[in-house]
Design a binder for these strands. Structure first.
Length: 107
DNA sequence: CGGTTGACTGTTT
DNA sequence: TAAACAGCCAACC
């Protein structure tokens, strides 16, 4: 079994899991926090592979433009609903107020 | 080995 | 503000 791949996966999920409620982070930001610069796409790939019932707060991850990156459909709707539920403003076009909600890890 | 595919990004229009 | 482009990179076939 590919140990490396699984290790990166765990680190990425650990970072996503540490994003506080009501805050959001970009794929690139998560990648950097996980020690994997330039691997934003890998973050998206890992999140896409999560089981439907996962407790990982994947909905707190957006693209660098501050928008829901998931293509319009059931998934993006769920993400928007979950964010709104945490007090994060989501415009009809899927845009989020990054200035107010961006997660800034402290140490 | 090589082409395709994205839940990406930064820069340029 | 938004779209087009060009890099980027692992996973898949």
């Amino acid at each position: 079994m590919p140990r490396d791949r699984d290790e990166r996966r765990q680190r990425i999920l650990a970072v996503v899991d540490s994003i506080p409620r009501g805050r959001v982070a970009s794929y690139g930001q998560v990648a950097r926090e996980a020690g994997l610069p330039r691997h934003a796409r890998l973050v998206g790939r890992v999140l896409a592979s999560l089981s439907p019932g996962s407790r990982i707060p994947w909905h707190r991850v957006l693209n660098s433009a501050g928008k829901i990156s998931l293509r319009p459909g059931p998934g993006s709707t769920t993400q928007a609903r979950r964010l709104a539920r945490e007090g994060v403003k989501v415009s009809p076009t899927g845009r989020i107020d990054l200035g107010a909600c961006r997660w800034t890890p402290e140490a």
